[in-house]
Design a protein around this nucleic acid. Structure first.
Lengths: 255, 255
DNA sequence: ACCAGCTGTTCGACTATCCTGAACTTTAAA
DNA sequence: TTTAAAGTTCAGGATAGTCGAACAGCTGGT
């Protein structure tokens, strides 16, 4: 269920943002290219780009416009807002060193899972940097690990907002079943994603909490299902992730 | 002299952006807090925030607003636009592993030096993640290394735009002197920053180019001046950075 | 060298729409 | 319960964004 937008929104700001999204979609563009795509006069687009350029939200190279460094700077603030997020980076990298699997640090924002740090080896085909991407909580490993630590009303609230959309045949779409799984996650201390949002994907996620009990985020390792096989291997991985999280929580408590 | 376009800019977009900057400055804020700081009615700010929230440029937690994940996602596109930039990340990390000094990958955008990747150890006090920050080219190590590889008209253009502002007593503020130093950089293959933009800072930077000859960006290592001493050590560091750059250029050429 | 066709940019008038202040609702504290 | 302060809604009026046309600058073709 999509969110409400009944409230009057600012058209001007909205089109400025739309232009930024266009610039991201295609890799930089000229004025008329965007004008055509958005079905708006060139002069309008030009005005927006001039404003965005002044703030360095876009930069201009020749006649091409690109996303600018100020956007990178501001966006990055999401990752530095909390000291815990900054600390999490090196633990993400350690997790990768130990497992040699793509490692991610994720936080919950607005009821979704947002990637803040990723670490992966050189030759990993699909390792685009997906920072800021938003995934569902109910069908990802860290997502479920985080959910399991949230107070129940909050869980309800999130499910009400986003529902339990089915993305593969393995997705848990039943409310009851999800809560049962969360209980299992709490017992064993980690969550597993068995191709629930992408086929052929296997992931293990563990939530990190403060001493107060509330969740900071979660660490996870991800790999192609066919390469992560055998109960021993899986158990060992779960153990490794849990260890990293423990050390992370400890270091955070000491700081 | 700063380039100020007197061209009509869009007020609405400009204030939306101003709000984002306020949210970054203080760490998340409520409506009235921003309204007060910007000396505008609450209802105005509310409208902007509602629009920004709809696009996930901000998120709302309780009555507090924070920079949102969509901004992180868009901003990060700056780092993934070119495959070379993505590849540069792992080399930045390797550089850190080998030198144990804060390592940075920087590109030139709009005549300034923009940090795209940083790698530094756990216990480095000042290692805030400054991605997207913009520094001058004339008084930084990578900056000079990059300048040295640019065609002369471009260098002139950049100096005309930003000037040669003095930031410490070591800053080169004379045009002639700068060109002489760039010549030296070309000869030795690396540039040095001897506390030219921050006191007590020492840095070595090397530019990376494509086979076509044009610059991709540059790698650098940075440390407190008092900890990087001795000509041997410095020469060894320069050698290490140059090696990394060579390997980077090679791998890029092969891909 | 010239022109044709494309781009980016400027400009002024119109009117859509953003701003504003006040009214209303909600939350928190006294 | 009352008070205060914050968030949110609303409608009218003035501002400021939109639009189209005209200008300028570049590119490639003939």
């Amino acid at each position: 269920m999509p969110t409400d937008d009944s409230t009057k929104t600012l058209r001007t700001t909205a089109t400025s943002i739309e232009i930024l999204k266009q610039l991201e979609a295609i890799d930089g563009a000229r004025v008329s290219e965007i004008a055509e795509r958005m079905d708006k006069p060139k002069s309008t687009i030009h005005g927006h780009l001039a404003t965005l350029k002044q703030e360095q939200f876009v930069i201009k190279e020749g006649d091409f416009y690109f996303i600018g460094p100020e956007l990178l700077r501001l966006g990055n603030q999401v990752r530095t807002r909390e000291p815990a997020f900054v600390l999490a980076r090196q633990f993400t990298e350690r997790l990768f060193e130990e497992t040699r699997l793509r490692s991610i640090f994720t936080v919950e924002m607005g009821g979704k899972a947002v990637f803040l740090h990723t670490a992966s080896g050189s030759k990993m085909g699909w390792s685009h940097e997906q920072l800021g991407n938003r995934l569902f909580l109910h069908n990802t490993a860290v997502g479920k690990a985080i959910l399991a630590e949230l107070p129940e009303p909050r869980i309800e609230q999130i499910i009400d907002r986003w529902g339990l959309p089915q993305e593969t045949e393995n997705t848990t779409t039943d409310r009851e079943a999800l809560f049962e799984e969360l209980e299992r996650v709490r017992e064993q201390g980690y969550a597993v994603n068995r191709a629930e949002n992408f086929n052929e994907l296997y992931a293990i996620g563990v939530a990190a909490t403060r001493r107060s009990g509330d969740v900071i985020g979660g660490f996870s390792v991800t790999g192609p299902a066919h390469s992560v096989t055998g109960e021993d291997r899986k158990a060992e991985l779960a153990h490794t992730v849990k260890d990293i999280v423990s050390e992370f929580e400890l270091e955070l408590a000491l700081a």
